[in-house]
Simulated scan of single mutants.
Amino acid sequence: MKYSHKLIPILVFSLLSACGKEHAPPSTHKETAVKYEKSVILQGAVSNNSGLLKTGKITAKSLNGDVLAETILENSARYQLQVPAGSLWPVLLHYVPEKANDDNEKMLSVAIQPTTTKYDINPMTTAIAKQAKLLGGYTLSNLTRAAEERVHVPDANKTSTGFRGDPTTQYGGWH
């Protein structure tokens, strides 16, 4: 039987993707900064487990800690920052509360692509950023992997976590 050379990579990818993600080693890809020539406006909302936060400071920083832009939240949970042309990406979006006496209130989000301009900042984005850093740095693959590890879907039946009710009506019935 003859196989097309185009099918071999698909077969290899299929076999590799069947492997469990739990045992995958940390990515060896280190974060690499890329310079973009155009300025970018980043925006989003800031919240914690109690709701929207309407005071505090948002600072956009490069990986080496250079401050690219900053703004103060004034009676609004929405922020907007203009990252100047020539800035290195990814950009770290730091939130510091008005009364910064508790490190637990500081939060982080990683703006990885300038083509995506909406980046909320909350405890989940902070946890994803911390996990991506542990996986080897702020790369798209590490951020994606860290986000996937935060989603809670049972392996046994692939139903939504916490579903209560008749399973025959979930997702429109049995599939």
Rank of each mutant, 00 (worst) to 15 (best):
L92S: 00
L11K: 11
T159D: 15
F13P: 00
S76L: 05
L63A: 15
D120P: 05
S4T: 12
S87L: 04
Q80V: 02
K61C: 14
L7M: 11
G137N: 04
H29G: 12
G162L: 07
G51W: 13
L135N: 09
N122I: 07
P167A: 15
D66M: 10
Q43V: 01
T139D: 00
H152Q: 14
L63V: 13
L135P: 00
R78E: 15
G165A: 12
H5M: 11
L68I: 10
S87R: 06
V153H: 13
Y119M: 00
N122E: 03
S4I: 08
I128F: 02
S14G: 12
N104T: 01
L135D: 08
I8W: 02
I8G: 01
L73F: 04
N101M: 06
P84T: 04
I10Y: 06
P26H: 05
M1S: 15
H29V: 14
Q131P: 01
V96H: 09
N104H: 02
I10T: 01
Y138M: 00
S27W: 07
I72D: 11
D103H: 00
G137D: 05
G172D: 07
A69C: 03
K38C: 05
P84S: 05
Y138Q: 03
I128W: 00
I72R: 14
G51P: 13
N75K: 10
P26A: 10
S27E: 03
Y36T: 08
R150T: 13
